[in-house]
Design a protein around this nucleic acid. Structure first.
Lengths: 252, 252
DNA sequence: CAAGGATTGACTGTCGACAATTTAGTTGTC
DNA sequence: GACAACTAAATTGTCGACAGTCAATCCTTG
């Protein structure tokens, strides 16, 4: 912590840790700078937003962030465009970039689309699934059970994510994978809320076991698989919405 | 038409019209510059790519484009990010930005996803449809018939686009609308190919009439509507692929 | 003559500064 | 006392320049 001159109020969006980290990587290692300073900055900002360190609705001030990161405004502005591409911020010309805050409407719009696309992904993946894929999903489901037993909601979310990503990836449809990445990022936006989101593990686990069984079975009708996957996401929306409600009311 | 000074070689990626147009707008009118120079440049580039004026695979040289537009590289680079967001180019760090060229795999990935999402859009739109919506779709279908009679493939594509956009918009799902915009842009990428794309008007017209009938009917089951819309896009893929084949072979 | 390395040229990445615009605060008038 | 116009500070938009990197070409050497 060489920044001794910073009595930074915690109103600062970014703490000093990441900026020095970036500066170090920038100087020392070449291969990381090959990844592009822009992408590094974007990655840090994405993390910050997803973890809730940067609150929704807040404005990303170029001048401040420039100083925080110790870089110029040019790569910063391009990083903003990446955030925009991922739907995390809104770029209002001559006004600045604003972190989007998730509303109920966003969730109500997001879930049906994601449900549909993951259903499609499952159907497309079914003929492609290897033994390794099945095995990995079984492992993921096992970890989900374990996390549920420990009442570790955060870990559960991670395992759940792994489970889904396996068959999404096996769909081998680049367009689909890209869109689901974006959609899932939106949902994970308030990932931290999941820590307080008392999910009904029983139902969720049963459904995922059911899905896995369909994947494992030889002659599963594609429509049945697609419908089930789609359904299991659709019914997850209402609990999510009520969880949002609780959190909103709690912060009042 | 005040641009009388353009004897610009067509080897230029961009002709002089747009750049001078941009410069003019930039000076004269405020409300257009409020739209942001970046967005203007992006819009022009998108048009160029969609119309095929900029070939797929070609590299967008910042230095050249800078001179063409008469602007600096900063807004240009940000415009590139917008193109990237729309999936029209690929940004390779330290290499440059390359216009994506559509492959068969892209089409094979794109159509199923779009079919699924438009099916969902139709189902979501059904309860929201107003008399005006129905009427506009009838008009669009009528224009489609007219264009078909004139063998005007280009106009047909436009009318067809209008027809779809009506119910897509009526889904009132912002996420869905955004994704379909991107997906449809990809398909329209080689919009000019449609001029040579000898579509089977009969089947297409019949299907759209069928869809419109389901929209008009009071008690259409949502699944039936969704399946039909989805199906009518899925079956459009193969003719599109063969059309691509022909075009490829023709250009050899 | 061929292969490997150095060199040069072109291009992208980054930066600091200036210009334009918005916003907030202040002053003046009705 | 309230509203409007003006002013000033803050912030975004744009630009030209420099630095670093990649690639192709040319030269050297075996």
């Amino acid at each position: 912590m060489s920044e001794s001159h910073m009595d930074i109020k915690e109103t600062n969006i970014l703490d000093g840790l990441h900026l020095s980290a970036i500066a170090k990587y920038q100087q020392n290692s070449n291969h990381l700078s090959c990844l592009g300073l822009v992408d590094q900055v974007a990655q840090v900002l994405i993390e910050k937003i997803l973890n809730g360190d940067i609150k929704g609705g807040s404005r990303l001030n170029e001048e401040h962030l420039k100083n925080e990161f110790g870089i110029s405004r040019t790569p910063l502005r391009e990083a903003f465009r990446i955030l925009d591409k991922n739907g995390l911020v809104e770029v209002r010309p001559r006004k600045g970039v604003f972190v989007k805050s998730i509303t109920k409407k966003d969730i109500q719009d997001n879930f049906p689309v994601r449900a549909n696309l993951e259903g499609l992904a499952a159907a497309l993946a079914y003929p492609n699934l290897t033994k390794t894929d099945i095995q990995q999903m079984e492992e993921a489901l096992q970890l989900m059970r374990q996390s549920a037993q420990n009442n570790d909601f955060y870990a559960y979310t991670g395992n759940h994510k792994d489970f889904h990503e396996i068959f999404i990836h096996s769909s081998k449809n680049a367009v689909l994978i890209g869109m689901l990445n974006t959609l899932r990022m939106h949902t994970l936006w308030h990932r931290y809320t999941f820590q307080y989101y008392q999910q009904d593990f029983e139902e969720s686990l049963a459904l995922h076991q059911q899905i896995l069984d369909l994947f494992k079975s030889r002659n599963t009708p594609l429509t049945e698989l697609e419908t089930l996957v789609r359904h299991h996401i659709e019914i997850a929306m209402d609990p999510f919405l009520t969880a949002m409600d609780k959190l909103e009311n709690a912060s009042d």
